[in-house]
């Protein structure tokens, strides 16, 4: 009797274990399992770290938050932060600067990048490879290094640029300290930084154009200018527009170089939105106000991105 009671459950549990293992195995091979393994992490990350933070920002915007010994204290202030936001001395000039920065830098990058791609597309393989490698440099290096390099080069006292001007007998220029030219200097650095990227995209675009069209048109066009104007430009229109729009939206991200080169100064001469948010949130410790700025910036950039997308879609349809 006693023996029976102890031994009987043993084969039972192994049987149960086997069924459990079998059903586990069946689940592991089922579609449902694969869906959750393959999409779960993506969905979870997007949900918890991109969507939740936006809601979180909305909640923060209604509070004043102070940190004491690593513990945050939230005080409900209603829409006070929004009022403060409209009076902010950094954000609005920053927004204007960001627009100036984005439009002028990207326009120059596009023109320069496209023209260089036109020239290089006619070069031989070797020089194309060499130029591609050189032009990759600024793209793949940490932006902070690029900021550091240019901070050295543009330095008033011993920067190489001013040394060069000195050789030509021109008085040194305070590239980053003069409020009138600081933004221009920063734009110049950005042009230097991103023209190669535009160049690579345009070169790839040019190389993928159908060669037969050129062969056919060589019977009709009378010079290189006509070929460019009537054949190349219309064929490249799509690539150009897409690159232009998305580079403009992406240039709203600029932060690293500004942080290192000018820190937004002098005054608000080179203030950009990303830097205003950083300043408010992390330097001034006004998280609530920073949250309002973040939300507003998100809305502006999202609107631009959606607008760009719609523009492209409409162009595709027509």
């Amino acid at each position: 009797m006693f023996k029976k009671m102890t031994t009987q459950p043993v084969p039972d549990t192994t049987g149960q274990l086997k069924t459990l293992l079998r059903s586990l195995r069946r689940y592991a091979e089922s579609d449902g399992c694969w869906y959750s393994i393959s999409l779960g992490p993506l969905a979870l990350i997007l949900l918890l770290l991109t969507i939740l933070p936006i809601i979180w920002l909305g909640w923060m915007a209604l509070h004043d938050i102070n940190w004491q010994d690593g513990v945050s204290h939230w005080e409900y202030v209603g829409l006070n932060n929004v009022v403060l936001f409209f009076d902010n001395h950094f954000y609005w000039p920053g927004l204007l600067n960001t627009f100036i920065f984005s439009i002028s830098a990207v326009s120059v990058q596009m023109v320069l990048g496209f023209l260089m791609a036109l020239v290089v597309s006619r070069s031989d393989r070797k020089s194309r490879l060499f130029l591609t490698v050189v032009f990759l440099l600024p793209i793949v290096l940490p932006p902070i290094v690029i900021g550091a390099i240019w901070k050295l080069m543009l330095s008033y006292d011993f920067g190489v640029i001013n040394d060069f001007l000195g050789l030509l007998g021109i008085a040194p220029v305070d590239w980053l300290g003069n409020a009138d030219i600081a933004l221009m200097s920063v734009i110049a650095v950005d042009i230097w930084h991103w023209t190669p990227f535009v160049f690579l995209l345009m070169l790839a675009g040019l190389e993928s154009l159908p060669q037969e069209v050129y062969e056919a048109s060589s019977l009709d066009v009378r010079n290189a200018w006509q070929e460019f104007w009537y054949i190349t430009l219309p064929l490249m229109q799509g690539t150009i527009l897409i690159t232009l729009l998305f580079r403009m939206v992406l240039s709203f991200k600029v932060f690293d170089e500004i942080y290192l080169l000018t820190g937004g100064g002098p005054g608000t001469a080179t203030e950009v939105v990303s830097f205003s948010i950083y300043r408010t949130f992390f330097t001034e410790d006004r998280a609530g106000l920073g949250a309002v700025m973040s939300i507003f910036t998100l809305l502006v950039v999202a609107a631009l991105a959606v607008f760009a997308q719609l523009l492209l879609k409409r162009r595709k349809q027509s």
Binding site: A43, L46, W56, F246, K253, A287, T297, V301, A302
Partner: peptide
């Protein structure tokens, strides 16, 4: 999923970093 991922890619990272900072704290 694709649309949101692409939109998120274009938004300035600092806006999310500020939220992450408080959440991570």
């Amino acid at each position: 999923l694709f649309a949101w991922a692409m939109l998120f890619h274009m938004l300035p990272p600092i806006t999310f970093v500020s939220a992450w900072f408080t959440i991570f704290s």
